[in-house]
Amino acid sequence: MERQALSCRDTTWLVSDARERRLTPEEGRSLAEHVATCPFCSRASVQFEVLFRQLEMYFGRQDEQGDGSKP
């Protein structure tokens, strides 16, 4: 089955959604494929990773594990 290619804009939605829910295998694959081939998205996704890590730092939540409440 032919998959609809993701746009960069679509990937930003998936990156955000992934904070709330586990992406489907299909979504995860499309996201990974797009990011691997798109230099803009690859940098943007690193920026998001840094953002999320630093937010946890700021909120003092970086040491928490598995309390089920961490995004």
């Binding site: 746009s7 960069c8 798109c38 940098r43 943007a44 690193v46 840094v50 890590r53």
Partner: peptide, 17 residues
Amino acid sequence: FDTNGCWMDAKDAWTDP
């Protein structure tokens, strides 16, 4: 984004401090 939903601007990679 442009009309195809692609980033308009080259992104700078920033890393953790």
